[in-house]
Nucleic acid binder design. Structure first.
Lengths: 262, 262
DNA sequence: CAGTGGTCTAGACCACCGG
DNA sequence: CGGTGGTCTAGACCACTGA
């Protein structure tokens, strides 16, 4: 163990920068420089209080900055640790290609296979409900009620994504799409069997901080944003046949797309 | 002005939930219900101290939660306000279509026009430099040095995006691409004139909390993540001719993509 | 048990804003 | 100037962890 003074400098009393920011800066720099590596424990609050000669709240303020940046996380009774970067799932632009469906794989499984992690789905709920204004706009204004399929995806035991699919009742009611298990290839395979040959998808992407309920559902650490993705599936007749609203833990994903140059 | 007790409830001393979380919950709910609207001033710390009968630090802790969620922002000497949602730029999947280039418009201008806001570019820097390992990987391992074009984009005076384009020297050196102003249609138009007919782009998207320097450059409020986008442009020969590394204020953007179903 | 972080208090002084 | 948020102190008690 290297001594603290050799890793962290002193404070600059002449600086305009608040003391707790200076402390946060020094800790951040130490992390960036690799003096503290992923998973390492930072000095305890008491140690920093002594090293810098400040009060405990000042040290805690510093930690709170780093937590907000997603750099560290605190574990009650143990310490404050450099947050390890979790393995990310790369979503490729061909993830909805028909050849995958024809192999009986859903998009999530295809990706999980590629990342060779253990995929799981839970908290499945399938019910009919009233369409929100936004969903109605996307599925066509005549669509008032929809079939909603909610599920949460886990990778290696960690929840990474919460998604709800909305389908018009005239398409989905009474079909296997309305069953908890939609069968091989997922609901997209069923839609095609029902005569809705898929033509393309549109995806809208936003990023923002999670709501408290999203923090809970995805067990998000402090300083982890979510990616909010809204996908609409269109059949060859030009009809929107499904809208999928997905909230993903941003630290678990890299999305990838191809754009035409023409 | 409605009185505080009619908007905010009391505390539940029997609850396990920390007092400052309960206060944050009540404020959040009041905002969600529309009791406080965008731009509205929340009760001052002193008012909440009195209303709840807690110490000031407890109230400030509540505010700090809401700030972390991006719901409110504090203005020194004025108060704490519900953060207004800024206008967003929608990036369409056809934003690099050749027809736009042929009209002499760069992608940013095309989008800004659509949003009818005042676009601006500043802090332009064009220089040759050593390619980072990642850039080198993307442009082809033989590419060691690159032309880097850095610029910041503003919309209605607000910085929303900071981007760096990297191009292999054998393509860009001595051309108009190496000039501060690359001419009508931007560097993609120049690349095509130089014989690199563009075929497609690949975009990689991540979301995360900003670094301190990104906070500064983009003047980000607390609780605003960034979207990190890395785009690679390929010519019809299959060569990567440009990599563009972009960091965007997440609250200013909605990205939109089309995916094939085949 | 000792060490850790989590919560909370009751003050203090400061910097900024608007009238 | 009074009111606002920004910073900081010096304590207190609690809950959780691991030996």
């Amino acid at each position: 163990m290297t001594s603290l003074p050799s890793i962290l400098g002193g404070l600059d009393p002449t600086s305009d920068r608040a003391v707790f920011r200076q402390i946060a800066d020094q800790l951040r720099e130490a992390i960036d420089r690799g003096r503290f590596k992923e998973g390492d424990k930072l000095p305890s609050e008491a140690e920093l209080v002594e090293h810098y000669g400040v009060s405990r709240m000042t040290v805690r303020n510093s930690f709170s900055i780093l937590q907000g940046e997603g750099l560290v996380h605190a574990e009650h009774g143990k310490g404050v640790f450099v947050r390890p970067r979790p393995p990310v799932r790369r979503l490729a632009s061909d993830r909805f290609a028909r050849r995958h469906r024809e192999q009986g794989k859903s998009a999530f499984i295809v990706e999980a296979d590629a990342a060779s992690s253990q995929p799981k789905v839970d908290s499945l709920e399938v019910k009919e409900e009233k369409a929100s204004q936004d969903i109605s706009n996307r599925l066509g204004d005549s669509v008032r009620r929809v079939l909603a399929r909610r599920r949460r995806y886990l990778l290696d035991g960690r929840p990474v994504e919460f998604a709800t699919s909305y389908l018009p009742l005239d398409i989905a009611r009474g079909t296997q799409i309305a069953e908890p298990n939609p069968g091989p290839g997922g609901i997209y395979a069923r839609l095609e069997e029902l005569g809705h040959q898929l033509d393309h998808f549109e995806e809208e992407i936003r990023a923002r901080m999670p709501s408290p309920s999203e923090v809970k559902t995805l067990q998000l650490a402090a300083g982890v944003p979510v990616i909010h993705l809204i996908r609409t599936a269109f059949d060859t007749a030009g009809r929107a046949v499904e809208v999928c609203d997905t909230v993903m833990a941003a630290d678990a994903y890299v999305l990838s797309y191809q754009l035409p140059a023409t």
